[in-house]
Deep mutational scan, measured.
Amino acid sequence: MATDAALRRLLRLHRTEIAVAVDSAFPLLHALADHDVVPEDKFQETLHLKEKEGCPQAFHALLSWLLTQDSTAILDFWRVLFKDYNLERYGRLQPILDSFPKDVDLSQPRKGRKPPAVPKALVPPPRLPTKRKASEEARAAAPAALTPRGTASPGSQLKAKPPKKPESSAEQQRLPLGNGIQTMSASVQRAVAMSSGDVPGARGAVEGILIQQVFESGGSKKCIQVGGEFYTPSKFEDSGSGKNKARSSSGPKPLVRAKGAQGAAPGGGEARLGQQGSVPAPLALPSDPQLHQKNEDECAVCRDGGELICCDGCPRAFHLACLSPPLREIPSGTWRCSSCLQATVQEVQPRAEEPRPQEPPVETPLPPGLRSAGEEVRGPPGEPLAGMDTTLVYKHLPAPPSAAPLPGLDSSALHPLLCVGPEGQQNLAPGARCGVCGDGTDVLRCTHCAAAFHWRCHFPAGTSRPGTGLRCRSCSGDVTPAPVEGVLAPSPARLAPGPAKDDTASHEPALH
């Protein structure tokens, strides 16, 4: 009773807030009518008042009428009001819900409408889902798969039609296919003929059939049928067999079959498995989609049935006599038709004709302190090069084509190399640097090759510096006499390219 009084008091307290929050009759008014909170006449009256005075006034009048009803109607109103779709449509209802007392429970059932309790003993237990329907569909599909699609060729003596089998029958139906081979029951999904010589313990000319048996419980189990008994694959494991010639990621696949039913060829011909030897223990289905393919039931050349050999690369099948050149017997292992072999060759040939990528240039590290003349020119003028003790990398590039010797140069053309002071002394051009340390401070000019250098860098042994005729380390061993002091540049003949010694390969005349 306390809860009923509290709900009535809360409705009177929030009546105006609810009326202002509800700006549309749908969905709240319609939901109240659906849950029998508002009768039909009051529903029509509220809609009429909404058209006349507006939605807030109409709902305020409806809530005032609701306060005169019993506690069950008020409880049902609060339940409908706080439904998710009403809270989404009328956003101003959320503060009312947040301020609702926590001790007021809106989930209690309506009085007088409590459903009768059902004894637990009368409640049926839930049924577990079964796979009976899938099993029945598999039974119905198996006879259809064994139905012949056409008439065999005159040369083929193997013609068999499976008798119709009602689904209610649980007995196995067997077809006489000759040579002791028996087909599987209607619940078998796949059958492959297997030679009895590969099964340990088999006697006589009995041949087993590799099947997948579907049981009534819905589970499946792969086994071997020899005669009327089934054997699990673990009985046929043979770890010492060295003649297993397995197909790549293979499961067994029928390579020879008669049109209309699988079996042995007439005249004692023995149908073979995809792999010879003992049956392997793992009978998992292969991951290669080509091995799941269903080959055609007629020859791809003459479009006739009979004894066919199936290609492992495509769905086509052929007569042995229709092949070019014809085959006398079934080859062992994987067999592919000429079209598949030709496609494989065409895929391999473009790969062989692809040009080989060019090898990157060989990189040879230079000892610290040495650099090529090109690196000396590329440096920024007026700045010493940083990191001189790091190992430089010199790339061996292809030799350029031989060019004509340089033409003779006048001494005026070499004027930018040297600057003559007032006393006739050779001065260095701006930006000249030593080729060893890279520093341009207090550098000297070689009178023979006009290269800038430090005496301490080229002659670290402490050799005394002569007063005139300074030469760098590369030119100090040259027998050519030094030019007379005061000459602007060496003779043009000295600039012609010539053979250089091994220790002077990195010091070429550089223009500054």
Rank of each mutant, 00 (worst) to 15 (best):
P124Q: 09
V226T: 07
V192F: 09
D23T: 01
I18P: 01
S107D: 06
S185F: 04
K133L: 01
K161G: 15
L49G: 01
L97P: 04
S168M: 15
C223P: 05
A140S: 10
A33T: 04
T46D: 00
K131R: 00
A121W: 15
A142I: 09
P126T: 02
Y85L: 03
K114E: 15
S168V: 07
L158Y: 11
H30R: 03
S220W: 00
D198N: 11
V192S: 06
Q213S: 06
D103K: 05
A121K: 13
S71C: 08
P124L: 11
D76G: 00
K42W: 01
A138V: 11
G260M: 15
R9K: 00
S168D: 03
S196L: 04
L87I: 15
L49F: 03
L29K: 03
Q157N: 08
L128H: 08
A73N: 00
E17M: 08
L32Q: 00
P116N: 15
R15P: 00
E216V: 03
P115S: 15
F100K: 07
D103C: 12
E53Y: 01
S71V: 03
E51Q: 05
R247L: 08
A144N: 04
R174A: 07
H60K: 00
V38A: 00
N244H: 04
R12D: 00
F215G: 04
L63T: 00
P95N: 15
G268E: 12
P129K: 11
S217V: 09
C55P: 05
A145W: 15
A193Q: 15
Q189P: 05
K102H: 00
V192G: 07
Q157K: 07
Q173A: 09
S195Q: 06
P176K: 14
S217T: 08
L75C: 06
R203Y: 05
L67P: 00
K83S: 02
R132F: 01
A121R: 09
I18V: 01
G227E: 03
G155N: 02
L255D: 03
D34G: 04
N179Y: 12
K52W: 00
G269N: 03
E167Y: 15
E229Y: 00
S239V: 12
P176M: 15
A170V: 07
R8G: 01
G240T: 15
T16S: 00
S169R: 06
A271M: 14
A2E: 12
V20L: 03
V256A: 12
L62E: 00
G180F: 01
A152V: 12
G208I: 01
R139Q: 14
V188S: 04
L177P: 04
Y231A: 06
A264P: 09
I209A: 02
G218D: 08
K259G: 00
S168T: 11
L158I: 09
S185E: 03
Q44V: 06
G263F: 03
G197A: 09
Q225I: 03
A191S: 10
D198F: 05
D4F: 04
